[in-house]
Design a protein around this nucleic acid. Structure first.
Lengths: 217, 217, 217, 217
DNA sequence: TAATAATCGAGACGGTACGTCACGTCTTGGA
DNA sequence: TCCAAGACGTGACGTACCGTCTCGATTATTA
């Protein structure tokens, strides 16, 4: 999204005139937003509260972010570089997926849960944020799955017709479902089940060709 | 949940004193809520707008519903009786699942989409609504899957260890994921993929016993 | 002006539905506005401060008044009925004018001064308020002069061609001038001077006819 | 006032170090302020708008002027030298006063009106500006009247007891009154009326001595 | 020919108040 | 009892200007 992009650009080497953006304010805003979100919940996360806690004017927030959700998104993506290339590489598809999913499930069932629930809820009300969220955080998560599947294809663990995008849906879909709907726990057993289900689905080579024929019937 | 329950009770034959509840107002409120949600989106759905459009006082709304989301939920559950016993019975697991999923996906990609997106978003902010939504609509959807799987087990299409709950997660999880995140279309191809993935996962009998052993390693 | 008019009407016999306007809030708002104006000055008179001091919501203020100046105007005009028919009647033009001007000058050089200075200043920035101010307060003041002059004409103290409107300008103009510009005191001597000047101007019968001729030259 | 004074001094030959003040910026600022005031009104006259229109930084404005009103005042006083010694000298009191008032009234009823209305309004909110305005522009205007009256006294047209200050009040007071209150037009007829009223008031020799006696009664 | 000094544009900053929106509650009179 | 109308206190919204504060660049005088 434009706002967040500008923010990052303006903090990068800045050849332009005028007082430079305050890195201190930016940090205080992001920290305040996360603090309020984690402690008081998303309902309490509003611009006035963030500004007050960060000792910052509302205008400064609005100058760089379109809404509180964008601040949270930036807080999450700012951590990402450290996690980059984080696609685990254990040598086996099952190992990789478990290495990916178990920490994910663990984080979402504790402190990360409320954050993602809030951002997904916000996505339903704000199309501009939805796009930013989808193309940054969510896309990054899906990309990891795609990388894992690609390696498994090279190793011959799954056929080349295997649909990596479907795999990402089969992993993150149910996780999201349990996170948002709360009908069952996000626990280890669930992680194992998801991995198994995803692997057998990837190995099932019907996907491409045969399916098209069926649909045509 | 209490409010919605009262609503239904109060419409049933009830010998209480005073002026009876206006069925006309109830209908107008529900229709207005759905109209606003479908046309102007979740962000525009508020009590004030519903009251204005329904020609009803805000008080009347607050008397019978706890929030706009409960109105929408009532609109959906009021339609349910007509769809009840909707678990399709084609004679095969694949047929049943397709019969279930294809219309679901079709509805969600058109007029039902905004409605479910709104209710799930609301669930993240309101725990009381979340419970109502989960135990009514969502539970009903999952129950259909469970019935289909049970029949498949009786037919011997899938082992008795097959996890019907996981099957529901594998079906509705990815659907929800695409609905909420919008990274890919909710189309026919997706429905076929989901059905295939779910079936191979159900047939994979590792699920229960072996898994526990692995986790213990 | 519409806002102020409605306010008065709605406090009068009200045959309409809905919760009636709170006379208590109205009183608290007007009193708070006057208190702030008298103690902290016009610069400190803003809607937020009035609302806070009156224990009232901003919305309630905006519902009935277009700006703080209108509240002050209502405070002044609400006192007017008590002063109505206040055109003094001493039996002589000079007596009447003195009876009118001396208290005016005295009030403006003490507590009324800041109030009128504020309202006139506001009139320069807000055309809608300017009209309200002119047609209520200012018009009432001018009307008193007109009544005094009319009686003097009947008594034969001044010719019938005497211009009562000009008399009002000659009285209130210089008073306003000193009030706003502050180049000299608003004192008793000034009141006497104004009365004398106004009287001789009224007796000077050139006004109408001869002037037109001159202008045509 | 200090700011404005500095402004003028700093433009005069001054051997201070550093980059000299930009005459170009000063001109642009003054012109922009006048343009906004004349076209968009007093309410739209703010530093931000002036800076934007002049293509100048806000800092530059704040460095040389204390508020927008001072800029306007400087715009008017910068024109004054050209008008200096403007006390008309037609040989008769009436001629002089007409020569003075008619152009004044004409200017105020067209382009000068908004300007003076703004400055007088500002004077009510800012005591420091009020003093600057009173002792520069307003004092100059009053001085002209005093000079005219002095010549009339030498000619014997009015007694030596005639109060020139009162004359200035009788002229500028009503003009200001109509300008600010807008209850009647600033036209030729009004100019004639004012002149006549002022002359008869000046000729009425009661003013000083007798009045004191009356007041003591 | 530097060093010093003041100004300039640009533009971000902490503030204050604005006027609006929706909330959920509360009187009214009437059905 | 319920209903519509609609006023009420509350809290947050996003915006407009305020006056101040860096920046890098520019243009003078002084050493």
């Amino acid at each position: 999204m434009t706002h967040a992009d500008n923010a990052e650009k303006n903090l990068a080497p800045r050849p332009r005139a005028g007082r430079p953006r305050s890195a201190e304010s930016r940090r205080a805003i992001i920290q305040s937003a996360m603090h309020i979100l984690q402690n008081d919940g998303y309902a309490a996360l509003n611009i006035e509260a963030i500004a007050a806690r960060a000792g910052v004017s509302k205008q400064t927030i609005y100058r760089w972010w379109a809404s509180a959700a964008f601040i949270v998104l930036e807080a999450l993506t700012a951590d990402m570089p450290a996690q980059e290339g984080l696609a685990p590489d254990t040598g086996s598809l099952k190992g990789d997926l478990l290495e990916l999913i178990r920490p994910t499930v663990r984080a979402l069932s504790s402190r990360r849960g409320p954050v993602y629930r809030a951002l997904i809820a916000e996505s339903q009300a704000d199309a501009r944020f939805a796009e930013a969220f989808r193309t940054s955080l969510m896309a990054a998560h899906r990309e990891v799955v795609r990388a894992i599947v690609a390696r498994a294809q090279l190793r011959g663990e799954v056929p080349f017709e295997a649909d990596a995008d479907l795999a990402a849906d089969l992993i993150y879909g149910p996780i999201l479902y349990r996170l948002l709907n709360g009908h069952a726990a996000l626990d280890e057993t669930f992680a194992f089940d998801l991995v198994d289900a995803t692997i057998v689905a990837l190995r099932n080579r019907e996907s491409g060709v045969k399916r098209a024929a069926e649909a045509a019937e």
